[in-house]
């Protein structure tokens, strides 16, 4: 469907670019991710959605190889293109991927950019290290990248420090740095949560345009379901580290089958929303999680077995759903 990038056309069109299977991550006694699986094809966009503590950002960090070995116990499999297992990949292996083939746009650009280096300096250092460009070539390319992400007067901005830019401009610079090496997979962790709505629309459009132009794939971490429906082909609904429902975003958001997806959607405020019917309470702490489905404590459809037994993520048409008592089919 989408033309794969030139430098990896041979790598088998049948296999998805990214396949995560049973990813589990434990920090001390807390199981932050509990058997997460997802796949992403070339040129596809996927949204990880859910409330805070769902593990959305943790998945993105794991895909970027940013989980310290001593900090957390990680199990399961993550295959990226021809790299069979990202989970057991060593730091040298990550050095060949991170920033070059998998890149990330962080949530808070102001914090992610180094305050002590100019915008140009940060771009040039990435281009020189990763692509081995000469200083002059790197500077030329940095200028092109800044212009590409819609920064006016890019020449002058090269010598600006991050604090001298507005939040929207900082995020554009982040996008430029992430795209510097034409990655095959872009991870965007809540790229617009700190920005005004008009700027949010600008940045999301920018990211979508750029990855489409490169035939790259993108994983967005989002908390706004409406925004996810506007920007992503696929959606993975997470709750407390478990996948509740996954599949094409349109189908899932138009007709949620999992009770959690339905409740999450019913909390979304649109202009003219008359009533909101949120689930009671909040996400329980890890110590109080039921052994079965973690949503069982707040689920209106919960059955006794939901608390004891974990429903398997099973295919149903194009979507995957983990629930013993889903909403009726439409």
């Amino acid at each position: 469907m989408t033309a794969p990038d030139a430098h990896q056309a041979a790598a088998g069109d049948a296999l998805p670019l990214l396949a995560v299977e049973g990813l589990t991550l434990e920090r001390g006694p807390s199981r932050i991710l509990d058997g997460v699986s997802l796949t992403l094809g070339r040129g596809e966009t996927l949204a990880l959605v859910g409330e805070s503590g769902a593990g959305k950002s943790t998945i993105a960090f794991a895909l970027m190889g940013l989980i310290g070995k001593g900090e957390a116990k990680i199990a399961g499999r993550m295959r990226f293109d021809e790299v069979e297992d990202l989970v057991s990949l060593n730091e040298r292996g990550w050095g060949r991927l991170r920033g070059r083939r998998i890149a990330m746009v962080f949530q808070d650009a102001g914090a992610a950019l180094d305050p002590c280096y100019t915008v140009g300096g940060q771009l040039v250092s990435v281009l020189r290290r990763q692509l081995g460009l000469s200083r002059a070539k790197a500077r030329e390319r940095a200028l092109e990248l800044l212009e590409g992400v819609g920064i006016n007067d890019a020449e002058a901005r090269l010598s600006a420090y991050p604090h001298e830019l507005s939040g929207g401009m900082q995020q554009r610079v982040m996008v430029a740095i992430a795209l510097a090496c034409n990655p095959e997979l872009l991870l965007a962790d809540e790229p617009t949560s700190a920005l005004d709505v008009t700027i949010q629309a600008q940045i999301i459009r920018l990211i979508l345009t750029e990855i489409r132009a490169r035939g790259a794939s993108c994983v967005f971490v989002l908390h706004d379901l409406a925004l996810a429906s506007q920007s992503c082909d696929k959606i993975v609904v997470l709750y407390a580290g478990q996948v509740m429902e996954a599949g094409p975003s349109r189908g899932i958001l138009e007709h949620p089958r999992h009770p959690y997806t339905r409740l999450l959607k019913s909390c979304v405020l649109e202009i003219g929303t008359e009533t909101l019917d949120p689930p009671e309470g909040g996400v329980p702490s890890y110590g109080d999680m039921p052994a079965g489905c973690r949503f069982a404590t707040r689920c209106p459809n919960a059955l006794p077995r939901c608390f004891a037994e974990r429903p398997v993520l099973a295919a149903e048409g194009e979507r995957l759903i983990a629930c013993f008592n889903p909403e009726p089919r439409q």
């Binding site: 008009t198 700027i199 949010q200 629309a201 600008q202 459009r205 706004d224 506007q230 202009i271």
Partner: peptide, 14 residues
């Protein structure tokens, strides 16, 4: 028009 809306294409922002 910049406010996210289900399934609407992301409009040309300001």
């Amino acid at each position: 028009r910049a406010a996210p809306e289900f399934f609407a294409p992301i409009t040309d922002p300001l």
